[in-house]
Amino acid sequence: MDRSFYQFVLSYRGGEKNDPHTIFAESMFNDHSFPRYERSFDTLSRYIEEKADPQMPSVLFDELYRHFEDRFL
């Protein structure tokens, strides 16, 4: 299945209010400049680091990307 990282992380929306994965997903969803069709770690990581949004910390991105890799890459 050709699922983007964005599509994968959306599966965490609507979870527990204080869950870091849910917070990341909600923040990503509300970020209209997020690269929605990207699958490349380097491109996504660069975006996360340059944006420096406290709701989308790079350490959590790394964890979510590993889960994405395990399932879809």
Rank of each mutant, 00 (worst) to 15 (best):
F68N: 00
P20D: 09
E49C: 14
M28R: 00
G15A: 11
P57G: 05
N30I: 02
D62S: 14
F34M: 04
V9S: 02
R3K: 14
I48E: 13
L44E: 10
Y6R: 03
Y37W: 06
L73Q: 08
L10Y: 02
D19Y: 10
L44N: 09
F29H: 15
N18W: 14
S27H: 10
S45N: 10
R13M: 13
S45E: 09
E49L: 15
T22Q: 10
Q7E: 15
L44Q: 02
S11D: 15
P57F: 04
G14H: 12
D53I: 03
E49H: 14
V9G: 02
E49R: 15
P57I: 04
Y12W: 11
S11W: 12
P57V: 04
V59N: 14
E63Y: 08
E16D: 14
P35I: 01
E50L: 09
S40N: 14
R39E: 05
Y47I: 00
Y47R: 08
Y65H: 12
Y12H: 13
Y37Q: 08
F5K: 04
D62T: 10
E38W: 02
E49P: 03
R36I: 07
D53S: 12
L10F: 01
Y47A: 03
D62W: 00
P54V: 02
R46D: 08
S58F: 06
D19H: 14
H32E: 13
L44R: 01
S45R: 09
F24I: 08
S45M: 03
P20L: 09
F29Y: 15
S27R: 13
E16Q: 12
H21C: 09
L44T: 06
P20T: 07
Q55G: 02
L73W: 07
P20K: 11
D31I: 01
P57N: 07
R3Y: 09
P54G: 00
S58Y: 02
S45I: 01
Q7L: 06
R36E: 08
D53F: 05
S33N: 11
F8G: 01
H32I: 10
L10V: 04
L60K: 14
K51P: 00
P35N: 09
Y65R: 11
R39S: 06
N30V: 00
R13F: 05
Y47T: 07
H21L: 11
R46F: 02
M1C: 07
G15L: 12
F8W: 13
F72C: 07
R36M: 09
D31V: 01
V59Y: 14
A25Y: 00
R3A: 08
